[in-house]
Design a protein around this nucleic acid. Sequence first.
RNA 1: GCGGGGGUCGCCGAGCAUGGCCAAAGGCGCAGGCUUCAGGAGCCUGUCCUGUAGAGGUUCGUGGGUUCAAAUCCCACCCCCCGCACCA
Length: 992
Amino acid sequence: MFSVRDNKTFNTPRIHSKSFMEFLKAIEEKWQGKWEKAKIFEADPDPKKPKYFITVAYPYPNSPQHIGHGRTYTLADVHARYMRMRGYNVLLPMAFHYTGTPVLAMAKRLADNDKNLIHDFIKVYKIPEEKLKELTDPMAMAWHFHQEIKTGMKEIGYSIDWRREFTTIDPHYNRFIEWQFQKLRQAGYISRGSHPVGWCPKDGNPVGQHDTVGDVEPEIAEFTLIKFKQNNLAFPTATLRPETIFGVTNIWLNPNTKYVKATVDDEQWIVSKECVEKLTHLNRKVKVLETFEGKKLVGHYVENPATKTKIPILPADFVDPKNATGVVMSVPGHAPYDYVALENLGKTPSQLKEYGLTPETIESVKPISLIEVPGYSEIPAADAVKKMNIKEQTDPKLEEATKEVYRHEFHNGKMKPNTGKYSGLSVNEAKEKVKQDLIAEGKATTMYELLNRPVLCRCKTECIVKIVQDQWFIDYGKQEWKALAHKNLDEMEILPEELRSEFNNVIDWLHEKACARKSGMGTRLPWDKNWIIESLSDSTIYMAYYTIVKHIKEHKLQPAQLTDEVFDYVFLGIGKATEIAKKAKLDAKIIEEMHSEFMYFYPLDSRHSGRDLVPNHLTFMIFNHTAIFPEKLWPRQIATNGSVMMEGAKMSKSFGNIIPLREGVAKFGADPIRLSVLSTAELLQDAEFSPAIAKSMRERLERIYKFTSEVAKSSGNAKTSQNLLTAIDRWMLSRLQEHIRKATEAMDKLAVRKTINSVLYMLEQDFQWYQKRIAPQKEKRKNTIECVYRRVLDAQTRMLTPVAPHLCEELWEMMSGKGFVSLASWPTADESMLNTEVEENEALVKDVLEDTLNIIKATGMTPKKIYYYTACPWKWKVYLKMLEKASHGEVKMSEVMKELVAEDDLKKNVKEVANFAQKTLKEVNRMPQDRRERVLKMKALEEKAAIEDAKDFLKQRLKAQIMVYSEEDSQRYDPKNRSILSMPFKPAIYIE
RNA sequence: GCGGGGGUCGCCGAGCAUGGCCAAAGGCGCAGGCUUCAGGAGCCUGUCCUGUAGAGGUUCGUGGGUUCAAAUCCCACCCCCCGCACCA
């Protein structure tokens, strides 16, 4: 970094970090106030300007936003600010998503005095304790966080048009959603049916991952219940492997838990007591007739419905009454649990007696082999059990053994001849067939159960599966709809592009999505008011609503006035405005205004969100747009970003490592926070945040501020005559163009990290080099140098504005720019200032310095005098000739020499020429073509002049006297005859 | 299982889509020096190995291959992260 202290001409008052923080606070307030007053972010249709419409997924007001959220919003804001500087009429609006149950649930937890929640509210969210009571009202809570989030967005400086703010429970918005759903229904995309869901019987609500203790996703599987019969009494054994029915040797019941005899629909079943409630939730009619312990039935016989053999009921401790029916069929040949349980039983005759079983009964139960698997014996279960050395049926290793056997049998197993018509089928095929056949014959039925149970609801109740009846779905499974979604995606820009394939997959996977629930806030389904549209379904096309909400507010329209016909006209141009207006009792002009504003801003140019919304919200947005709007109004771009890591762990409430955004802004400043969340990672990756990063960003800004204010203070003129510019000035300006080009290219792809890198680091590096280089001439050329400074700072300030708008406004004002830098134009690279020659010359100086330092390092000497000898003209001639040849194919020594010798001036010293050509050959051949071309275009470099020009600088750096000669200079001092070693781009060096 | 992303010099992290000034940017850390009343900060130098002349050697998950040339292209394998829904 440049040192202010080095600039003796400047007399800087030192700003301490603390006071710089105060300074930041002051300018944040100052500029936010000015922006608001000047209404510069309020965008209205302007036919003279191209528009750019950006939206970000609106926040959910159940907690303050933290720095992690800040990344997504900041990125969108940076995008908006950039496009504004590129001359677009940019609209960036914001709203709040009240829909759903979480706020309700949280308010309830607060009312119930949930300790963890209260702790978070007070300690993390810094909510005064006396306010908590107020927040037990869900609306008050939502409103509180809504305001909290909004204030945070203002404090960090987002360029939002707040006139368009709304919430998703505003009655006007409800009307809009009703219209949307009518449209979906008319298009045939709404369906109805029954659907199994994870369910908390206490709360009476579906549970998803976020509703469970430990955030586990309830995994629902369909078990086959095979009915083993004792006369008319059915023992429905629950299994995931119905094909093994041919190997069933017995039935297991847990002897020490409660079972019931019950009427289930039209049959009599034996199931565990716990199973009853589950069956009820699965919509079966259950009536319990009798309750008893499992041991009561041990020793009874039942009939295998597939083989008609009579098999005994035996006791087993591993049987979990809470899993499915609590009745289990035993396949000891292929199920490790059954195998071990049977062995255990055989070894405990005393226990047998207790259940009235004889050793002979057990003896007669032999494993049956029905699947053939390569690499296993007749009895795979036995193999696995032996391999893992499992002795007890309670051994947790049994879980793994089961999986192993299943994996092998499923992929490589074949049904044996004793499986009747399934003989020869793969297990994979037989499984489904057997199941279907048994069900068709009435010998089996199915039951949903959680695979990963126990799953506990946040309220600590164990979850079960419920079949929700007559659930409403949006049917994303429709092929013709998928085709439209693909079409939209194909035409859309996806940032980062890597995620496109994920979108493609999601579009293919999606099927019916339950779109309404019985509880929560939101909009009621217009045709079935018992249902409330859930949050992922009422947030798919609301970007359109931003374009009209301004008018709704302005004209104080009533929800009832927003009829479906009004929306049809506004969004789809259907009907006649005057007629519709009359019917809706509003002014036709208003409808026209809304329509034209919508048509001006739509389609959506860019949609921003976290990448976690790819498989749901973002894809739903695509689908819904294609269902409702004509193709030319489909979204144009999706930009997603990864999350923010806090010291290595994902920042999230459940980890308790969040920093609320407002706190971060207060502590480190708005611009440093903006910079921090965008500079450490590119879109796809997770970004790392830490106070240290924010602090170092702030310090960097502080240095820029200090430096700029010094330059601004000086009388320096922004203009200087071209012919006063020296090589190094031209070099700086040339480099500047390159950095502008790179930063712009990166911004166009929203590679903000790269932009910041160019503007803040790469440009800065060159700028520092420039300052070092001109240091010896500073006084003499003050005016010109300051002019270069100003040019660099002007471009840097503009390019930094989208990420650090507050500081940049301040810098801009200091440098006496006109108006707001937020509205200034983004710099464009001036091709005419690109200068390869000065860049090559400067590279030469750098190389020379580096080589010299390397020699000093290797020899350990302290130089007094350093001599440089630049290559003589004939070497350059040979070099360029060889380059020329090399650009047409590989150069061969013999060929080159032939040509070279033909030249009169080279003929004289053939030996030296050959020697030099030999040395150059490799370099010339391996040089990349674009560089060859560049060098050939420049011809020979004025090396001597270039080094001569940097003499003062080298002297200062190397603390030695510098002499520069041309190789052929007759006056040269060259005791060791080093000069002969000189090559183009590589002067010879002699150090004394 | 299906799908997506990724493995780089102590750490973080560029570069790889357009192979070649790549021993590989930058930051952090570490070591030495300077500046400073001090704290912080700043500045300079070094930080894979070897080397008393600008050099050489070995590196970019593992193993192959393509090429005059591979961190970069191709193939196989190993390892890590994320998503799979009814919920924001």
